[in-house]
């Protein structure tokens, strides 16, 4: 970059080394920023050991009531009514396969949703925003961290539940179920990006997050089959990735599971991925412009 002075003489400005645009070096730099953001969050989490221990224990605390309640009401782990509805009567396996995704709903709504707001609470948001890294990478850093965190937690839960109760799973269904899970996560990331934008504008975004989390919990067939919901709720659940993903994952994972709607689950999830990601990014950039216009960035 050159500049002319008032006498017309050309001066070379200091070259700035910073990859930009859609180049491989820039993509690499953004990916590194995402990774380093993830590492930073791990370090911050581990700086509060008691909170970290709580995070490790709480998934069990939330899961056990689901299972114990089911066992108590049914009087064992086999439910004939459940078998009539979905083909399998094993309540423990059914509930656990649903429960596995709850933590990932939290990834989108709470972790990603509050990634930017958290930096605002720390006081570091403006320092991050003056760097050339995309703001989206900061949210994705949290997404990566939370996904790893939840995956580790889910793996431990899986091992514990498997040892205590035993799970009737089809091993050959794990890979296709993981593929469905990955497609669900992409859509949830889009959703998380959207919530992160909303939490910056609304400030008390936790109310929105709480509301969205509750709606997702009702519309996602975590502890009951989708078919028990009213028709209108079943239709509404189709805009969320968790409902079709759970139906699809159970179809591959649970023995004798005969879901009503499996057909085009991959296409359904792919469509939701595109919609949620594009919509999330669109709102995120609109919000970015809005808060930079109004000066809300520095306001708590």
């Amino acid at each position: 970059m050159n500049l002319k002075d008032t006498s017309g003489k050309v001066h070379k400005l200091r070259e700035v080394k910073c990859p930009t645009g859609f180049t491989w070096s820039n993509i690499k730099a953004e990916l590194r920023a995402i990774w380093e953001s993830n590492i930073k969050i791990w370090k911050l989490d581990l700086a509060y050991p008691i909170s970290f221990v709580r995070q490790c224990i709480s998934p069990f605390v939330f899961l056990l009531p689901f299972i114990i309640y089911g066992l108590a009401v049914i009087g064992g782990r086999h439910s004939e009514n459940l078998e009539r509805l979905v083909g399998t009567g094993d309540v423990v396996t059914f509930v656990f396969t649903g429960y596995m995704i709850i933590g990932f709903i939290g990834t989108a709504v709470w972790a990603m949703g509050f990634s930017i707001r958290r930096e605002q609470w720390f006081g570091t948001l403006e320092s991050l925003y003056v760097t050339p890294t995309s703001r989206l990478s900061l949210v994705l850093g949290m997404a990566l961290h939370s996904t790893i965190h939840q995956s580790l937690g889910t793996a431990i839960e899986f091992a514990a539940i498997y040892l205590i109760f035993g799970l009737a799973l089809q091993i050959q269904g794990i890979l296709p179920a993981l593929l469905i899970f990955a497609l669900m996560m992409l859509a949830l990331y889009g959703f998380g990006i959207l919530v992160s934008a909303l939490s910056l504008i609304l400030k008390e975004g936790w109310i929105v997050a709480e509301g969205l989390h509750s709606i997702m919990m009702i519309l996602s067939p975590v502890a009951y089959p989708l078919i028990v919901l009213p028709t209108i709720a079943q239709q509404a659940s189709s805009v969320l990735p968790t409902a079709p993903a759970l139906v699809g994952m159970r179809a591959f994972l649970i023995e004798n599971y005969t879901p009503q709607v499996v057909g085009n689950i991959f296409l359904h999830l792919l469509a939701l991925d595109v919609i949620w990601i594009l919509f999330g990014i669109f709102i995120f950039y609109l919000t970015d412009i809005y808060i930079r216009k109004t000066g809300n960035l520095a306001k708590y």
């Binding site: 910073c18 990859p19 820039n26 730099a29 590194r32 920023a33 990774w35 380093e36 953001s37 590492i39 930073k40 320092s127 991050l128 760097t131 050339p132 890294t133």
Partner: peptide
């Protein structure tokens, strides 16, 4: 180290 990664 973290901010260096953000400055690419």
């Amino acid at each position: 180290m973290y901010f260096a990664s953000l400055y690419k």
